[in-house]
Design a protein around this nucleic acid. Structure first.
Lengths: 164, 164
DNA sequence: ACAGCACACTTGTAGCTACAACTATTCCCT
DNA sequence: AGGGAATAGTTGTAGCTACAAGTGTGCTGT
């Protein structure tokens, strides 16, 4: 427990990252909630389902890809189910498991929400950075996730676009 | 509303950032809560006060520096006050305003919490990155905050360590 | 001087997340 | 086989945040 304090450069980087951590989620959430009535996390759940084969995933797998705990996902899916955007049914292969499937209206909702969300991401993340910085950010993210996600839980998601 | 989708490189960077956004706050929060009973945001509030002249700041200024809305800060300070870590008193200069001051026990709490928090930040952010990446991260953060925080609300905080 | 507006908070409430049980299957090992 | 552990998921509850009002104070203009 004998860790040295951060030096000036490290502190500079950390304080900025902390500020981004504090501000960016609110911006993303606010746009989606205002324009579509979805949370950023709701959107991610629907988006992951929309890209899955059969627009269906087991809860555990969905939790992995969205990096949620299972209880959190369960609550969120319950709400989405109540709104008719997702449906749950028992997995035939493993009777412990539950599958979540995107409904027609759910698919429509994703299509409807995507452009505005992408525009927000562009505006606040992509556009302010140079091409070089985009690549630097990807590399930095990689390095951080190696610590944050050592078991590679989200790896299936964030390595999908490696080396085109 | 006619925004193009993200290309592969942009998507790569964004997905990683989104994952960091999802995972890092939880890690920081968990360590502080477990070891000190403070939220990451609680800690930031106390830390900002501890660095202020007289360990005192007006609520509005404190909200600025921690990037919180005033209602959020008000609730948090109420709880911290209930735990004896902070005290509130009316600002003599402007009777609309309220000052928040770090108490003795509050100061002790920050001192106690800081090493573990710094160790966590080191472990999950600073150590995984090269010196070069630290500087890149600072620059990227700068660029993003220009959009996220155009009024420079947090600027007082995150530019404090510019050009040593 | 005083009406109207802006500012600095506080309070109330709804909604989301984390944590801790709890149930129901499946796997493993002897 | 059959008992114990691990896995998959749900539910309940406490705590934090956002949003919307509501209160009191200062400022501005005529």
């Amino acid at each position: 427990m004998d860790t040295p304090w951060l030096d000036r450069r490290q502190l500079r980087a950390w304080i900025r990252l902390a500020a981004v951590l504090e501000l960016l989620p609110g911006v993303l959430d606010a746009q989606l909630r205002r324009d579509t009535g979805l949370t950023h996390f709701d959107y991610y759940v629907l988006a992951m389902l929309s890209e899955a084969p059969g627009r269906t995933l087991r809860m555990t797998e969905l939790a992995r890809q969205t990096n949620a705990t299972l209880p959190r996902l369960s609550h969120v899916v319950s709400r989405l189910e109540g709104r008719g955007l997702v449906e749950r049914f028992p997995c035939p292969a493993d009777r412990r498991a539950t599958n979540a499937r995107l409904t027609g209206p759910g698919w429509g909702k994703v299509q409807e929400a995507a452009p505005g969300h992408v525009a927000t991401v562009r505006q606040h993340v992509v556009d302010p950075l140079t091409d070089e910085q985009i690549d630097q950010l990807a590399a930095i993210g990689d390095a951080l996730l190696a610590r944050l996600d050592p078991s590679g839980t989200m790896a299936a998601t964030y390595t999908r676009y490696d080396e085109g």
